[in-house]
Design a protein around this nucleic acid. Structure first.
Lengths: 233, 233
DNA sequence: AGCATTCAAAGTGTCAACAGTTTTTGTTTC
DNA sequence: GAAACAAAAACTGTTGACACTTTGAATGCT
């Protein structure tokens, strides 16, 4: 019964246990990641009730570690708790989503501000290259590839700040926005529009004006907020 | 044995169970608050090992709820975990503290930016009143009262934005800074200095220039960061 | 039929015990 | 005396069981 953890019974097409080859991590942490993925992917929808017994059975564990995992998600703000009634996937409303967009904008703006003092030729070259690629993808209407490139572009900017707290906070906020039922896949809407904003961001970095950069980065997120607000209004 | 929760045995001068008259909350949540308080007050020092058995005995509960509480603190970033070895109070280093100051500055700057569009006569009057009080307290060298007034001043500014996500994020960051061993009680250092910065913040709000306000708020935290960095360097 | 009541089923909250790992202690050997 | 090894103590990881609460359905009454 213990060995089921490394080699769980596959009871006729079940899909628990993603890639648990290395048992370096505690079961609770593993479950947390699994659940977080299910929540963020929408497989567990916002507002949905989280039944401990069912989930424990689904992952082939007991309720103890599962509850610990749920507590972690609770602390992260992904689920809400009602005493003696259970936990529910957090459902973020329109107003709160707009609030989060603002905080995210501020943090992204900080990224721009920090980057201004860290700009190198290599960095700029990398960024201009990425802009070119994204233009190409946008022209080819390859939404999926553009989406990935866009993600990588932002990720590169964030990590280049060297501020890991900033990166973590930013990701946390982006994740929270996934808990909004009425979230719009905004990328499909403004494609080359978005890339024009990207270019303005890079150019403001190149200019060396940290206020301009901060504002460009800030507004990039604010415009995403407005696109969200108009579609989900 | 269940009743020990509402009426725990006081085994000769122990000090568990703060104010658990209303059992509205789950034991785990209650423990989390207790532990968080112990951590932030420094009674459980950064780096200290957290023994589940001892802690459970101290609070008069079993390890289950205690572990859930610790998991919440883990998710919040207050403790670190080493598999099969236990959990430790997170110890934040100088570099990470400086990073956090930057993020905090960005969020506080956002508060200033938002407030600019929400300024009313009542709000300004309240702020100028608070400035006057703090000047008085600073002149009287009443550090303790100034500290409290300062806290209330910032709290009022934050909540006046109406953005509860912003407030939550800000508090989370302030709390994390308490996990830095070498944190300086910076308030004692610059007293009227600090209040001069406060006045600049309020005046920038009154001016209606949101960029100026954002920058004033931002720099207020950045200067706190610099005071921290110079004393803890 | 409609509404209140009762009772069982389902689910969460908590605990005590067991399994496996890490740390400490005690002993032996050189 | 110091290093290597072995046994045990301490602790974490996980589980199954029990207590209490909520939910929902069946029953009885008007």
């Amino acid at each position: 019964m213990h060995d089921e953890r490394t080699m769980p019974e596959d009871d006729g097409g079940g899909e628990p246990q993603a890639d648990r080859t290395a048992v370096e991590d505690s079961l609770a942490s593993h479950l947390e990641r699994q659940l977080e993925h299910l929540v963020l992917s929408g497989e567990l929808a916002p507002g949905e009730r989280l039944n401990e017994i069912h989930l424990a059975a689904r992952f082939g564990t007991s309720r103890g570690p599962l509850r610990e995992a749920l507590r972690m998600l609770h602390a992260k703000g992904f689920v809400t708790t009602v005493r003696n009634r259970g936990m529910y996937v957090r459902a973020i409303g329109r107003e709160e989503a707009l609030e989060i967009y603002d905080v995210r904008a501020a943090i992204f703006g900080l990224a721009g501000r920090i980057l201004t003092d860290k700009v190198t030729d290599d960095l700029l070259e990398h960024l201009y290259l990425a802009l070119g690629e994204m233009d190409t993808l946008a022209a080819a209407r390859d939404f999926d590839a553009y989406y990935r490139a866009n993600l990588g572009f932002h990720e590169f900017l964030l990590t280049s700040t060297g501020n890991s707290s900033l990166v973590a906070q930013y990701h946390s906020l982006v994740d929270k926005l996934h808990l909004c039922r009425a979230r719009s896949l905004v990328q499909a809407g403004g494609l080359s529009v978005s890339n024009r904003e990207h270019r303005e961001m890079v150019e403001s970095l190149a200019s060396g004006d940290k206020f301009r950069a901060q504002e460009a980065f800030f507004r990039h997120v604010e415009r995403a907020k407005m696109r969200f607000g108009s579609t989900a209004g």
